[in-house]
């Protein structure tokens, strides 16, 4: 699953814009990933300007 380094994240929303599944939500300083919808395509990890997102092997994903 995709996880977030909260201290690295600048809450810019770039990952929200490229997410093909619309499974990321940006509130003011809160980034929420809906793991039920996320397909772990890694695009958010690649696009993030500060590498705040990372994948962890979990339940086979």
């Amino acid at each position: 699953m995709i996880l977030l380094h909260q201290n690295k994240c600048d809450y810019c929303g770039t990952c929200v814009g490229i997410c093909p599944e619309n499974c990321i939500e940006l509130a003011e300083t809160d980034l929420v990933i809906d793991h039920k919808i996320c397909t772990v395509c890694h695009k958010c990890i690649w696009i993030c300007p500060v590498e705040a997102l990372f994948a962890r092997k979990d339940n086979g994903s």
Binding site: I18, C19, I47, P49, V50
Partner: peptide, 13 residues
């Protein structure tokens, strides 16, 4: 569908 393609998203600092 407002998804931006990877090639069309400039990631900036």
């Amino acid at each position: 569908d407002t998804t931006v393609h990877m090639r069309d998203m400039e990631t900036c600092a």
